[in-house]
Amino acid sequence: MRAVLGLLLLFALLPFLPLGDWRAFVLDVGFFVQVLAALALSWDLVARTGQLSLAHGAFFGLGAYGVGLLAPELGTLPALLLGALLAGLSALLLGAVALRLHGLYFAIASLAFSEVLRTLALKLPFAGGPIGLPVPPALGGAWPLAPYFLGLGVLLLAVALSLWAERGAFGLAQAATRQSEAVARVLGVRVVRVKLLSLFLGSLTAGLAGGVYGMKTLFLNPYDAFSLARAVEALVIPIFGGLYSTLGPLLGGVLLVSLEQALRLWIQEGYLVVYGGILVLAILFLPKGLLGLLGGRRG
């Protein structure tokens, strides 16, 4: 808990620290860390019920497309919320249809779902088609730090949701559902509701993260916004950091995303070989993720 708050405080104070020449760069990296950590947390929230989502890239993309399409009409914040809602509704659809699929079957079904959505984004004429969609900068672009603080807001929301779930009865219900749905039912857990709510909340935050991402990159195309690579990133970070927790995905996001940026600066060519090597070593020697390093305090 203290570590979580400490990290959040660091993000909040980052723009005010005397970072000298590196300030703008650190803030840019910090922005992407926030967005991807929020995405990872939102994935973990869903994973806690045993649903392995490979559709988080698509939820992210829906949020981003929502912003790209609606922000010119409605302004930044309403567009952000509606985009996230769009992601949430699509997740409910997926959840309702694929309710009885488990583990890898759910993963493949969600992958298929996300590929279909991407094709739709590619084919719907109002979504800019294959050429892509320009996104207006956050709050009219008047304030360069706006995306950073929007990112911070999304991260705070993701952390708050995750902590709420982790500490309350909902988290127990999630864990019971993950371990055995049949047993959970016997224990009086309303499995369907727990799964759908987790999926809805998880995709909502993923959509928000995508929306903020779009406001920073200013341009979306279906191959980038709905990419499978992002869905995989959303699951790599929590596993690396430590599953089914708040600190794990957060810490994993901070380390993994900054590590990738740093490796790219230092090594340049072939830096991904080292990145992949670190992932493999982490699994071999830290089976519980980074949290294992901290002494495995959680139950």
Binding site: D21, W22, F25, V29, Y213, K216, F219, Q261, R264, Q268
Partner: peptide, 24 residues
Amino acid sequence: VVADDGTDPAKAVPALTKLLTVDR
């Protein structure tokens, strides 16, 4: 001063910021 944009907006934006502010 050479930097890799990774053909990816999420990598290109910080890389450009670094060129402009750190490497000036």
